[in-house]
């Protein structure tokens, strides 16, 4: 199957992963890169401790994620 759509790639990757667990190494890198980026961004935005919570809650209210 020659992949054409995003879903085709999802299927192709899942099939390859089922047969070869080495591909999990790439997945780990991608997931951790996202987490590191997110941590760094929000630390810069809101600092730490109580200041972080106040800033974060204000941001979350703005996005409608909390009341």
């Amino acid at each position: 199957m020659k992949p054409k759509t995003n879903l085709d790639y999802v299927v192709l990757y899942a099939r390859a992963l089922r047969e070869n667990n080495k591909l999990f190494e790439q997945q780990k890198k991608l997931i951790e890169a996202q987490l590191i980026g997110s941590k760094s961004l929000f630390r810069k935005m809101f600092g730490s401790g109580e200041k972080f919570k106040i800033g974060a809650r204000k941001y979350l209210r703005g996005r409608g994620l909390i009341k």
Binding site: R18, E19, E25
Partner: peptide
């Protein structure tokens, strides 16, 4: 040696990979 992404051990699915920070 190429290993499968998961195996079944009884009724437990065992995924053969390292933990991520999310895990």
């Amino acid at each position: 040696m190429i290993k499968k992404g998961y195996i079944l051990e009884g009724d437990v699915i065992v995924v053969d990979r390292d933990w991520t920070e999310l895990d």
